[in-house]
Simulated scan of single mutants.
Amino acid sequence: MGLFTVDEARHELARLRPVLDEIVTVRADMVELASGTPTPLGGLPERKAAEARLNELMTEVQQTGAELKGVAPLLVDFPADRDGVPILLCWLEGDTELGWYHRADLGFAGRRRL
Rank of each mutant, 00 (worst) to 15 (best):
A28I: 00
T59R: 15
L54P: 03
G99W: 01
G84A: 10
R47L: 15
A14R: 11
P73Y: 06
A80C: 05
Y101H: 14
H102V: 07
I87Q: 07
V24K: 12
A14E: 14
K48L: 15
G107V: 01
L98I: 08
A28L: 06
V61F: 01
G99T: 10
G42H: 10
V31T: 13
L92P: 00
T59F: 09
V76G: 05
T5N: 02
H11E: 13
L57V: 06
E12F: 01
D21M: 04
L57A: 08
G42Q: 10
A66K: 02
F4M: 00
I87M: 07
Y101K: 09
E93D: 10
F108Q: 13
V85C: 07
G99Q: 11
K69W: 05
H11T: 10
E51F: 08
G94W: 05
A14Q: 10
L98H: 06
A72R: 14
V76D: 05
V31I: 14
G42W: 12
G43Y: 09
R103G: 04
C90G: 03
F108K: 09
E8F: 00
G42I: 11
T25M: 09
G94E: 05
V6R: 11
R103D: 11
E60Q: 15
D7S: 10
E56C: 07
R103L: 12
R17E: 10
V19P: 00
I87G: 07
L20M: 02
L89P: 07
R111Q: 05
L57P: 06
A109G: 10
G42K: 09
E12M: 11
D29N: 15
E51D: 12
L54T: 03
L3S: 04
T59K: 14
L75S: 04
A80V: 02
A14I: 01
W91H: 09
F78T: 07
E32D: 13
L33I: 04
F4G: 03
L114C: 08
